[in-house]
Amino acid sequence: MAAPGEALTQSGYISHHLTNLSLVKLGLVEEGSFWNVHIDSLFFSFVMGVIFLWVFHSVAKKATTGVPGKLQCFVEMVVEFVDQNVKDTFHGRNPLIAPLALTVFCWIFLMNLLDLVPIDFIPYPAEHWLGIPYLKIVPTTDVNITMAMALGVFALMVYYSIKVKGLGGFARELALHPFNHWTMIPFNLLIEVVSLLAKPLSLGMRLFGNLFAGEVVFILCAAMLPWYLQWMGSLPWAIFHILIILIQAFVFMMLTIVYLSMAHEDSDH
């Protein structure tokens, strides 16, 4: 599949599959508008979130103390895995951390999992049957989605840092660390503010970069090989990519726990 006028070129095919369905592409807002929204990223991230909530809610309602079913065993394994990581990493007391870690892990994994869907499996019928010109189905290949999640974690970091340490304690932590002397405040602020802002940036960009790179490989396989040979490139990469999908969800979850654990630590000053 390719956009009009791009059907015979590999570059047009690749460009088409890397373009989000946005309000700009639908002609609803002007190019470069602040109010532009990637509709496909929001839709599929919402759908994956609903699937996660529905599956876990259904299992919780039907849970039995007898011989559990396969789905209940799987859900219990995931919950215990996340719970153990929270116990090992988070040293404060907060009932929000374990549910947040579970949500982050499962939601990101489900969104990443969409990267294994064949490139044209959904966009092709969407364009030819529904008239949707562009469609990217993997939300985590959209930097807006990954950075939004990272900024959400950052907001919690700042909130709990102030709640646990107080506004003064949080300010002193930025101003008097690592050098506990008033003459070093400008230098300390430079180091600590940069370090603080680097956390959400690295958190969001790491997830985006790894998933976007994987998507590009799948698109290249589809663009450069005839349809009957595409599996020779896509299948081996998909098998390897399963590890990336799982690892990136785990890394995002663990860093979320670590950052929130740091926010709950008492100030050294």
Rank of each mutant, 00 (worst) to 15 (best):
L96S: 14
S58L: 11
A150E: 03
M205L: 15
M149E: 07
I132T: 04
A249W: 00
T140R: 06
L28P: 00
H181W: 03
L8C: 10
N188V: 00
V251M: 15
K70T: 15
H128Q: 14
V164E: 08
I162E: 06
L174S: 01
A175L: 12
L100N: 08
G209K: 03
L100A: 11
Y259S: 04
I239H: 04
R172M: 08
G214E: 00
Y124M: 09
V158Y: 01
L156F: 06
L21S: 03
E173Q: 11
G166P: 02
L116V: 04
S234F: 07
V78H: 03
L220W: 09
V24E: 14
L71M: 09
D266K: 09
Y160T: 12
F218A: 08
L167Y: 05
S22T: 13
V67M: 05
L156E: 02
K61L: 15
V251D: 09
L42K: 04
F212S: 06
E215A: 08
K199V: 09
H91M: 10
P4I: 13
L201H: 05
K70P: 15
G204E: 01
A3M: 11
W129K: 15
L243C: 13
M254D: 02
F187P: 10
G32Y: 00
T141N: 04
A7Q: 15
F252T: 00
I145F: 03
L246S: 13
L201K: 06
H57P: 06
L197R: 04
D266L: 11
F52W: 15
S261R: 07
A223S: 13
F121W: 11
F187E: 11
W35T: 08
P133A: 12
L151P: 01
H128V: 13
N85P: 02
P200N: 11
I39A: 10
F212Y: 13
F52P: 04
A101M: 02
S41G: 07
A63P: 00
V193L: 15
G168Q: 13
V59N: 01
G32S: 04
I122S: 13
Y124Q: 09
Q248Y: 05
G169N: 03
L21F: 08
H177Y: 07
E173C: 09
Y13R: 07
L130P: 01
L23H: 03
L207M: 10
R93H: 13
L71I: 08
M232T: 14
S58F: 10
V47A: 01
I145V: 10
K163Q: 12
H128K: 14
H177D: 09
L96P: 06
A126R: 08
H57T: 08
Y124R: 11
G49Y: 00
N20I: 02
H269Y: 06
L42W: 06
G214W: 00
A213Y: 13
G69F: 02
G92V: 04
F218Y: 09
V164G: 05
A238G: 13
V59W: 00
V193R: 12
F43E: 06
E76V: 11
V251Q: 09
A3G: 12
E31K: 12
G69H: 03
L135H: 01
F46R: 15
L135K: 02
V104I: 07
F81W: 10
E265G: 07
S58D: 14
